[in-house]
Simulated assay, not measured.
Amino acid sequence: MAIPTTMFGILALVALVVPGIVFAGVRAWLRGYKWSDQTAASRVLDAVLVSVILDALYLWAFGALLAPILNDPQGELIANPSSLGFATVVLGLAIPAGIAFAWHADMTWTKPAWGWWPSWVQIPRRRSSFESTPTAWDKVAPRHSDVWVKIRLPNGERVAGWMSGKSFVSTYPQPRDIYIQEQFTISADGSIGDRIPNTGGVWLSITDGSIVEWINEPEGDTDT
């Protein structure tokens, strides 16, 4: 796909993509990812479809105001930059985000648990439990630090080690894997043993069927 070089081409590309991307981003934040969000092609198609619908509605409702911009976008940019910027924010960002929020948000008004908050003042909160993070691994795995980790692979092999600041886990859209900075022995019953001499860490691919267990270090036991 060739990148447009004319002002009209750039404007057309923005109009065909940006409103849909904003709509999809707010929708994913509110309701989580759909099955069609798994590939880039389907995401682009959804964004273009939403953008085309919104652009048609914009032309129907604000055609007279948008006609000068479409006729001479570069001239309008030079003559009225603030007006063009305002229109871009409203039509490209605010309206798509507002529609996505009104369509997909499941809100309720509740009183916060803070003791100092006035009882008669309520704030909106999401009632649904949808999560925009793609998987539980993506949500939880990167947050673990200064913990023991035990992994049982699909073939029955066990690996254990200590995770801290030099460890790393990969997340979506990359395949799951983990780097454990210090490897320890592990017995058949799952007990973690001694530190492997001269360990430089171990890398593992976390395939389907693997079991990963994180264990918080016992209080007062900091010798790894």
Rank of each mutant, 00 (worst) to 15 (best):
L91M: 14
L91C: 13
G92T: 02
L93Y: 15
A94V: 07
A94C: 05
I95S: 03
A97C: 12
A97F: 07
A97T: 06
I99Q: 11
A100Y: 01
A100P: 08
F101C: 02
F101Q: 02
W103D: 13
H104A: 11
A105H: 08
D106C: 02
M107Y: 14
M107H: 08
M107K: 08
T110E: 15
P112V: 13
W114V: 12
G115P: 05
W116Q: 11
W117I: 04
P118N: 03
P118T: 05
W120N: 13
Q122F: 11
I123C: 10
I123R: 13
I123G: 08
P124E: 08
R126K: 14
R127G: 15
S128E: 12
F130D: 15
F130I: 03
F130Y: 15
E131Y: 10
E131C: 09
S132Q: 03
S132E: 03
P134N: 05
T135I: 04
A136F: 04
A136C: 04
W137E: 09
W137A: 03
W137C: 07
W137D: 09
D138T: 01
H144N: 12
H144T: 11
D146M: 04
D146V: 03
V147E: 07
V147M: 15
I151W: 03
I151R: 04
L153F: 02
P154F: 07
G156D: 10
G156L: 05
G156P: 07
V159G: 03
V159W: 06
M163A: 04
S164D: 15
S167E: 05
F168S: 12
V169T: 12
S170T: 13
T171E: 13
P173Q: 02
P173E: 04
Q174S: 13
Q174L: 12
D177M: 10
D177N: 14
Y179W: 14
Y179I: 08
Y179L: 01
E182S: 11
E182G: 02
Q183C: 06
F184N: 04
F184I: 00
F184W: 06
S187I: 06
